[in-house]
Design a binder for these strands. Structure first.
Length: 179
DNA sequence: AGTAGGATGGGCT
DNA sequence: GCCCATCCTACTC
């Protein structure tokens, strides 16, 4: 079942946790690529000193202010496309970063790791899919396949690469699913 | 107009 | 662990 807008309109921390075990589906012409989400990070609005939205609205981070369920894809370190999904209410600049996946298709392709910058390569996602509505999309959307998650297999931890974020650097807003 | 610094990943030591 | 590829954004002047 495709995830609906309501799924993403909830509290960002809940969405980040609930995305664990869900499927990302990427359709390119005849080809379908699927992957299960196993790691996410929540970025919680202007008050979150690690969030791109902390300095206000810019051309880059504008999608975060839009409706939930849209993508926010941006270039990191000049070479990595990172995939976020906008969450919470409109005008609340919150999003969940997809940090880790397990590929379910096309495993013959050699990708050694599936960190946030590499999973977009596997899924063939770049900034052309920025600000893209996944709810009505034929190119990129999320699905629940009833995959059972045991709560004990979910852990949380501080987010990666945000040491500048003052008191927010220690917030356990990264969620990891052990399969 | 110029520049510093990233929500990184891979390879080598 | 350290280094480096690589380039856009936002801030400063």
């Amino acid at each position: 079942m495709k995830l609906k807008r309501e799924f993403f309109e909830r509290d960002t921390l809940e969405v980040a946790r609930d995305l664990l075990g869900k499927i990302i589906v990427r359709e390119i012409g005849e080809r379908i690529i699927k992957a299960r989400i196993i790691e996410t990070e929540a970025y919680c609005g202007v008050e979150d000193k690690a969030c791109h939205a902390r300095h206000g609205k810019t051309k880059r981070n504008a999608p975060m202010w839009g409706p939930a369920g849209f993508t926010y894809v941006y270039l990191c370190m000049g070479l990595h496309n990172l995939l976020n999904i906008v969450t919470g209410e409109k005008d609340q600049p919150e999003a969940v970063l997809i940090r880790g996946i397990i590929p379910l298709t096309g495993t013959s392709e050699k990708f050694k790791s599936y960190g946030p910058g590499n999973l977009t390569k596997y899924l063939k996602i770049n900034r052309g899919l920025n600000n893209h509505d996944t709810i009505y999309s034929r190119q990129l959307w999320f699905e629940d396949d009833e995959f059972a998650i045991a709560l004990k297999n979910i852990t949380s931890a501080p987010r990666i690469g945000i040491s500048y974020a003052a008191e927010y650097r220690h917030k356990p807003w990264r969620f990891i699913l052990k399969i």
